[in-house]
């Protein structure tokens, strides 16, 4: 019996194609996988003592406004519902993060679940990333309505995703998608980005127009 079961990301085979699309667009759209981030699902009453305990343990408060995310200390807390959040941390920290949260909520009425294997994470960034995602998302992604600190659960090309705008400078998004849909979504994104990777696109300076 194998001692270790090797991890395979459903997006593992796409790295070269993502890099080619990024190069081909001259950086107008950048596609990449964020491998194996720790993802912990937290359910608790936002008005109860467990919410305060989690805030003290993580150093960031769980956002109570719908469709928002809070970042800090290498973690991100994404609003999933009025009593549900997804805490995302660096790869390899899932066990530690889960025990920190479990220790914090203690005997309070709450649920802490490691769901790291549930979703794969895509990074979509670059000046044309909003245009690329808009090919398959009905939400208004303009920075005015979907800027830094926003997150949403919606359909991207008919696949359910959690979309969150990164806080870094310039347009960029995390797209968290169920692992069984990740290959499909990667193929769809590569196809949708063909407009920006067409020969001559970068040379025309289109990528600098935004």
């Amino acid at each position: 019996m194998a001692e270790h079961i090797a991890r395979h990301s459903p997006l593992g085979g796409f790295a070269a194609r993502f890099a080619a699309a990024t190069r081909g667009s001259g950086g107008a759209v950048r596609l990449a996988e964020l491998p194996y981030p720790a993802q912990i699902n937290v359910r608790l009453d936002p008005k109860g003592p467990a919410a305060d305990a989690v805030r003290l343990a993580l150093g960031i408060a769980l956002p109570v406004e719908p469709n928002t995310a809070v970042r800090g200390g290498g973690l991100a807390a994404l609003w999933l519902g009025p009593d549900e959040w997804l805490v995302v941390g660096p790869a390899g920290t899932a066990g530690d993060l889960e025990s920190r949260l479990r220790g914090a909520v203690g005997a309070y009425h709450a649920a802490v679940t490691d769901v790291s294997a549930q979703r794969s994470t895509l990074l979509v960034s670059g000046p044309r990333s909003r245009d690329l995602l808009s090919h398959g998302i009905a939400l208004d992604l303009h920075p005015r309505s979907f800027g830094a600190g926003r997150c949403a659960q919606t359909m991207l090309a008919r696949a359910q995703v959690i979309l969150t705008a990164r806080d870094e400078r310039g347009p960029g998004f995390w797209v968290l998608v169920r692992s069984s849909f990740a290959g499909y979504l990667a193929q769809w994104l590569l196809d949708a980005s063909s407009e920006y990777t067409a020969p001559g696109y970068a040379a025309q300076g289109c990528s600098a127009s935004q």
């Binding site: 719908p66 469709n67 009905a138 949403a152 659960q153 919606t154 359909m155 008919r158």
Partner: peptide, 10 residues
């Protein structure tokens, strides 16, 4: 009432 206006498909 939580997320705002969304497509019927959701």
């Amino acid at each position: 009432p939580w997320c705002g206006p969304r497509d019927e498909a959701e």
